[in-house]
């Protein structure tokens, strides 16, 4: 059962990722990528890592995908209103529908599987408590370094992203 699920989910991941990198419409690509992340999350659950599975959904399928959509909106990469009014055709709907159905089916099948046991690891290999201690004990420095990095990544992004209107105006006045 677990083996069947593994290959099924692996197949969904590969197909969804392939579709994601071949779509011309960036929003469609993002939808396929979300599918792929969900399949990955279920795979992690199957391997006895429910915590990682939850993060895969929360961080990747949730936060990072929203970031993708924001950037698509900001760069105005989405199709023009004319193309949008037509709406996606049924053959554009079909693959994502099938993949999503496969994922739902796999999730239902997971109820009957004792996750992780097939791989010989306990069901909760790392509890949130263990994880917290590892993160803020063993890897405390890493957490601090990451927070530092976020600070000056923000400083850098702010500097690079600031529009340069004043300078251009000055130049034009000079010329």
């Amino acid at each position: 059962m677990a083996t069947v699920l593994f290959y099924l989910l692996g197949l969904v991941t590969v197909i969804a990722t392939l579709l994601a990198i071949t779509r011309r419409n960036p929003v469609h690509a993002v939808i396929y990528l979300v599918n792929s992340f969900f399949a990955l999350a279920l795979l992690f659950y199957l391997l006895g890592a429910p915590l990682v599975a939850a993060w895969e959904v929360i961080i990747y399928a949730g936060a990072i995908m929203v970031l993708f959509l924001f950037i698509i909106m900001m760069l105005e990469l989405a199709p023009t209103p004319e193309a949008d009014r037509m709406g996606p055709t049924w053959w554009q709907w079909l693959p994502v529908l099938l993949l999503a159905l496969a994922l739902v089916g796999c999730t239902l099948m997971l109820i009957g599987v004792d996750a992780g046991v097939a791989q010989g690891v306990p069901r909760w290999y790392a509890t949130p408590r263990d994880f917290g201690f590892a993160l803020f004990g063993k890897y405390a420095l890493a957490v601090e370094v990451v927070s530092f990095q976020l600070l000056f990544a923000a400083v850098g992004a702010f500097y690079v992203g600031k529009p340069e209107r004043k300078r251009r105006q000055k130049k034009e006045e000079g010329a």
């Binding site: 370094v145 530092f148 990095q149 000056f152 990544a153 850098g156 992004a157 500097y159 690079v160």
Partner: peptide, 8 residues
């Protein structure tokens, strides 16, 4: 850390 600052 080194790279991100250098990109900027």
């Amino acid at each position: 850390v080194l790279s991100v600052s250098l990109y900027v």
